[in-house]
Nucleic acid binder design. Sequence first.
DNA 1: AACTCGGGGCA
DNA 2: TGCCCAGAGTT
Length: 218
Amino acid sequence: MMSKKQTMEALDVIASMYPDAECELTHENPFELLIAVVLSAQCTDALVNKVTPGLFAKYKKPEDYVVVPLEELEQDIRSIGLFRSKAKNIKKLSQSLIELHNGEVPKTREELVELAGVGRKTANVVTSVAFNIPAIAVDTHVERVSKRLGICRWKDSVMEVEKTLMKKIPEERWSDAHHQLIFFGRYHCKAQSPRCETCPLLEMCREGQKRMKARVKG
DNA sequence: AACTCGGGGCA
DNA sequence: TGCCCAGAGTT
C-alpha cells in the first residue's frame, strides 16, 4: 500500500492534471443541495445543473415535492435519466424530512443517512458542501482510483476506503482531493478503459504496473 | 453480490 | 450505434 507521502505525491500529480477540479453542485440552500445530490446519481453534475434552476424555482420546500403528482415531477426531471425512480425517491425523501426533522435538513451524517434515498456518499457531500464539515465522499470513481493506485486495499469496503483516505490526506485537502480523484477517474483512469499508456502516475501505480507487465508477457 | 433504473454524453 | 455513467434500494 502507498504510504502517506506516496499518496500525497500521487495526489499532487493528479492536481496538476486537473487544476480546476471542483464541486459543480454549489447550492447554498441545504435542501436544494440535497435534492441536487440525489439527482446526480449515475449522471454528471453538469446534466443536473440543467434542470435545477427550473426545478428550484418551482419547488421551494419539501411539501411542494410531496403534493405534486408523481408524473409532473417526472416530467420536470425527465432529461437527466433514471427520472422515474428519482422522482419517487425525491417524494419519499421530502416526506421523511417532514416526518423526522420538521422539513429542515439535518446537519449530521448520522441523521442524514436515516432519510429515504440518502446513503453515505450523499450525506458526506451535503455535510461538507452545505455545512462545511470536512468529509471525503467515496463514490465509484474515488473507490476505483484509490484501489488501483494502491492508496487502499482491493478488498476494502467503502467505509474502509474513506477511513484510509482520511488518514493519509490532511484535512484541509480532503475536499480538493475528493474532486481531483473524481476527475482523474472520470477522464483518465476510466472504469473499463484506463489510459495507462499516457498516465503520469504509471510508475507509482500498483494496478498500472501489473497491467504493463501483463502486456509485455502476453 | 447482483440487479434495477434511463436519457444524455461521447467514441 | 453502442457503451458508459458524481447511487441507493431490493432480492
